[in-house]
Each structure stands twice: as structure tokens, then as C-alpha cells.
């Protein structure tokens, strides 16, 4: 494990007192977090811990109630559309499901950011996109459509598209979700390679322990919208905190419930729906 927790390196992301709500439900609760240049930070937490919300808020996709998210000098929370788009040109994002466009072939998907943002000629675009595809071990699959790709290939393709513009900062949502352990480990290798070869800062959201331990310089654990711990892999492993231990030992965390409440839970006729609408963990 390499530690790049260099105190002199300026933070590429600074999150201060970040609070978000979904409807009336509070998701993130005065969260503070700093990501250093050149490190791999893994954000962990169970379902409903707010880790996806944190990611979406960092990307400017979700609005924050209060606080600030400073990425490369731009406050994402209060930025206008133009500033956000300027910032996003230096950011790569690989989504959980890949989010490839079904009407475009693999290589067209990867080329899309180049075509939209640069005036490069056709040959250069082809070479640059093939370089990235080759890096992700996808050479020779140029003309396949997303529907013809396997789960692992889709994730790799999404990663290739995310880094085709050589961003300084890469976000990866659940790299190993839905993959078998071998393919997941392969994907971790690619993440480490990107960090070393291209000097990227990488923020990964995941709930997979093995993956997190393999790639992380530092790990942040969230629980119910609060940060439980941020530290190196060893620091996290040695933490005595109950939430951390639950996560590490894969124990289900349950809030204590009184016998009366439990009886009510079992016997009430209609399940209460606290909040309508979609649920984002």
C-alpha cells in the first residue's frame, strides 16, 4: 500500500459542513472531507449511508442544502452551469451501470467527449480512443454495441470513456458491483494503473471491502450521512468504532427496538411509507 497522505499537497476536493436533504429527510449531515491530489480515496458505507448522494453532490447532480464542495477551486454547490461544465471537462465519471449510450458502438461511446469538446481530426480521435480501449483491454471490440458487451466489459468501457479526456480527477461509482471476484480484481488493477500511469486523483464509491483494501490510499466510512472515520487502510482496520467493526465484519447493524415497537411493527395493518419517491442510498 502506498501512502500519499502528504500534508503539503493541496487538497483537490474540500468538502465543508455539507448537508443535503431528499424531501424532508436529511441524507448528509454536516460532512467534512478532504481529498488529496494523487490519492485513491474510497468512500464506503452500507445502503442508505449517503455515499451515492455524496458522489452526486460532488458532481453537481444533486443540490446541497448547505455547506460547500470545493473542487479544483470551484464551489460546486453554488456554481452556475457554465462553471460546472468547465469543471466537468477536467473530471471523469464512471457510473455504476456504465451509462453507455445504446445507440452508439463501443468506440463511438468512448469518442463522444473528444468529438464534443475538441477539434481533433478523425485520425487523432481514433488513435486516442483506441489507446484508452487498449489500456482497458478492450482492443478489437470497437464496433460492438453496448448490448453485446458483458458486465465487466461495460464497466471497462465506462472507465475508458471517463478517462479519454485525460482528466485530473476520476470518480468511480461501485466498480465491483455485479461482477464476479476475478473481474472485480481486474478492474481494481486498472484503477491502480490509472493512478500510477496518469497521476490521477481517484474517488471510488463502493461497499466491497476487498476492493477497497486493494486500491485505497485512504478510506472514508459513512453511516447515516455522517463520517465515521477517514484514514489509511491500517487505521481503518484498527478502529474500535462499532460502525466500522460492523462493516468490516459484515454484521448487520440494527437500531435497538423496544418490545412494544416490535409488536407494533409486526401487527400493524398497513406499512407506513415515510417518504414517497425514489430511494437513493
Amino acid at each position: 500500500m502506498t501512502t500519499t497522505d502528504d500534508q503539503t499537497a493541496p487538497g483537490i476536493i474540500k468538502i465543508e459542513q455539507l448537508t443535503t436533504h431528499y424531501g424532508e429527510r436529511q441524507i448528509l449531515d454536516e460532512l467534512n472531507l478532504e481529498v488529496n491530489r494523487g490519492e485513491v480515496l474510497v468512500i464506503m458505507g452500507g445502503s442508505g449511508s449517503g455515499k451515492s448522494t455524496l458522489l452526486r453532490t460532488m458532481l453537481g447532480l444533486n443540490k446541497a442544502t448547505s455547506g460547500s464542495v470545493d473542487i479544483m477551486g470551484i464551489d460546486v454547490v453554488n456554481a452556475n452551469r457554465k462553471q460546472l461544465y468547465q469543471l466537468r471537462r477536467n473530471i471523469g465519471v464512471a457510473f455504476q451501470g456504465g451509462a453507455l449510450f445504446g445507440s452508439m458502438s463501443l468506440i463511438e461511446n468512448v469518442q463522444l467527449p473528444l468529438r464534443e469538446h475538441t477539434n481533433l481530426d478523425e485520425n487523432t480521435i481514433r488513435i486516442m480512443s483506441r489507446l484508452k480501449l487498449d489500456m482497458m483491454n478492450l482492443s478489437g471490440f470497437d464496433d460492438l454495441m453496448p448490448s453485446e458487451l458483458s458486465g465487466g466489459m461495460i464497466k471497462r468501457a465506462a472507465l475508458a470513456r471517463a478517462v479519454v479526456m485525460d482528466p485530473k480527477l476520476l470518480f468511480f461509482d461501485e466498480p465491483s458491483a455485479g461482477l464476479d471476484p476475478v473481474v472485480a480484481a481486474e478492474l481494481d488493477e486498472y484503477i491502480l494503473e490509472l493512478k500510477q500511469a496518469m497521476d490521477m486523483t481517484i474517488v471510488v464509491v463502493t461497499h466491497e471491502l476487498e476492493s477497497a483494501f486493494r486500491i485505497a490510499d485512504r478510506i472514508t466510512i459513512l453511516d447515516k450521512g455522517k463520517m465515521v472515520i477517514t484514514g489509511t487502510v491500517d487505521e481503518v482496520k484498527q478502529s474500535q468504532d462499532q460502525h466500522v467493526q460492523n462493516l468490516l465484519n459484515r454484521r448487520a447493524a440494527r437500531d435497538p427496538i423496544s418490545p412494544d415497537e416490535y409488536l407494533d411493527l409486526l401487527t400493524r395493518t398497513k406499512a407506513s411509507r415515510p417518504i414517497p419517491g425514489r430511494i437513493h442510498d
Binding site: L59, L61, L84, Y85, Q86, P113, E116
Partner: peptide, 21 residues
């Protein structure tokens, strides 16, 4: 489907305006 599949978010994150695109 592009919305549920996060494709619209992906466009936003690639700094491509979904309206224009």
C-alpha cells in the same frame, strides 16, 4: 430509460448539454 440508466447524468458529467445533444 436514459434517465433511470444514469445516461443523462453521464452526459452532464461529460459536460455535454443533454438538451442540445
Amino acid at each position: 430509460i436514459m434517465r433511470t440508466d444514469e445516461q443523462l447524468d453521464a452526459l452532464e458529467c461529460m459536460a455535454i448539454d443533454p438538451y442540445r445533444f
